[in-house]
């Protein structure tokens, strides 16, 4: 029963909301909107699970004095301060000083760290492209040439080198790039459809945990 009930829920809801898509009536639309709101409310509580796991991981790390345990206090403090200020400054509590502090923390702590984290990837990408170029295969060369032309096409320096570079860059984006992206999207679509059907019909059971049996 522990496994049959969830499988039944998936089957019934999956079939009901697949059929709902093809029923153009007011009742069908209301059912869809209600289910969407219920789903949003229910899935919001999954945040508790995520935060519980994060807190659990760091509390255990501190308790067991694992390597770099002292930094776990920083994570827990960041979570507590940002979470508390965000909630207190939000529309439900509405403390203006908390909202101001939350905004300052977002603008001068969260956003700069976010940008800096992604910015350092530029260096690792440069090193990855160097390694790809050393592979000396035809495919790697095509990849790098396409990437290089697209990069030159974006910046004014590309047009300074040769005025046709932006046009070639646009052609790469609109023809071969679009074709491969469409092929990938179609593959994703077909794969997602097959997976959704497998989940609804109970063929795919890995989400049940363990062996799924």
């Amino acid at each position: 029963m522990k496994r049959q009930l969830p499988l039944m829920i998936v089957l019934v809801l999956g079939i009901a909301f697949t059929v709902q898509f093809f029923i153009p009536s007011r009742a069908s639309e209301v059912t869809y909107q209600t289910a969407l709101q219920w789903w949003l409310v229910m899935s919001s509580f999954a945040m508790v699970l995520a935060l519980g796991s994060l807190v659990n991981h760091h509390v255990l790390k501190i308790k067991r004095r694992k390597e770099h345990w002292a930094f776990s206090w920083v994570t827990l403090a960041g979570l507590l301060v940002m979470g508390a200020l965000g909630i207190m400054g939000g529309p439900s509590v509405g403390l203006r000083w908390a909202n101001a502090a939350y905004n300052q923390l977002f603008l001068f702590v969260q956003a700069p760290m976010d940008s800096a984290m992604f910015a350092i990837l530029a260096f690792y990408m440069a090193s990855a492209s160097y390694r790809a170029f050393r592979a000396r295969s035809k495919e790697a060369t095509v990849l790098l040439i396409a990437g290089f032309v697209v990069m030159l096409g974006i910046i004014p320096f590309g047009a300074m080198l040769w005025r046709r570079i932006p046009d070639i860059s646009e052609w790469i984006m609109m023809v071969p790039n679009m074709a491969s992206k469409r092929g990938i999207l179609l593959g994703i679509g077909l794969g997602s459809t097959a997976t959704a059907l497998k989940i609804i019909l109970g063929i795919e059971r890995s989400w049940l945990g363990g062996s799924g049996k």
Binding site: V74, L79, M82, G83, L85, G86
Partner: peptide, 23 residues
């Protein structure tokens, strides 16, 4: 470590303010 903690806190505040409170 600070980035991880603050991002989680930011996520918590967003879920609370944008999903749970209005819905």
């Amino acid at each position: 470590y600070l980035f991880v903690g603050m991002s989680a806190g930011y996520g918590l505040a967003r879920v609370w303010n944008n999903a749970l409170v209005p819905n």
